[in-house]
């Protein structure tokens, strides 16, 4: 699937609207950005930056899977000032070397979103790691137990309010 195809297909599911407060892009943190953004690979490292609602994340993963992409990483970010967690899924294509970032945001007090491990089994560990670090619950995940932290860990160290 080319970037154009992905733009259209991801655009359809991103129509639900981007979650209002948006990642600070090039100096304008408050301005809302389009849900699907073609980015300059040389500047951002991605070719496409997509923001979807948390409940559409599985659809987005399915599109990426059909496009022959692979899941490279899942990054959690704690935007404590916005009272939200952001989860960034980085996809890349072995064939074209293109890179797509799919973002979603969940409220900080009910951090839950669907798991995509059924589509990308590699997501299993990435989601467990994100759960370790931020306490984000991935619903439908088969084994959301600590992966990197000790088995009995109950803390989430990468939360910005950890240790305070």
């Amino acid at each position: 699937m080319t970037i154009q195809d992905l733009t259209t297909r991801l655009g359809e599911i991103a129509q639900g609207g981007a979650t209002p407060p948006v990642t600070p892009t090039e100096g304008q943190p408050a301005a809302p950005v389009a849900p699907v953004l073609e980015t300059d690979h040389a500047k951002r490292g991605t070719d496409l930056d997509v923001t979807v609602q948390p409940d559409r994340i599985q659809d987005a993963a399915r599109i990426m899977d059909q496009g022959g992409y692979t899941l490279e990483a899942i990054t959690g970010v704690d935007w404590i000032a916005d009272k939200q967690y952001e989860v960034v899924y980085d996809f890349t294509s072995f064939a074209s070397g293109k890179r797509v970032a799919v973002r979603t945001r969940v409220p900080r007090d009910i951090p839950a979103l669907p798991s995509i491990h059924a589509i990308f089994p590699g997501a299993n560990w990435h989601e467990r790691e994100t759960h370790d670090f931020f306490g984000i619950k991935f619903s439908g995940h088969p084994q959301l137990t600590p992966l990197l932290l000790p088995e009995d860990a109950t803390f989430h160290p990468l939360r910005k309010d950890f240790g305070t």
Partner: peptide
């Protein structure tokens, strides 16, 4: 660095090593 985020990948001896850096 100015506000923003970016991703960078290199081919390490074991595969693709990536860094996502987010600056405030």
């Amino acid at each position: 660095p100015p506000k923003g985020d970016c991703y960078f990948n290199v081919e390490s001896a074991r595969g693709s090593f990536g860094v996502r850096a987010i600056s405030d």
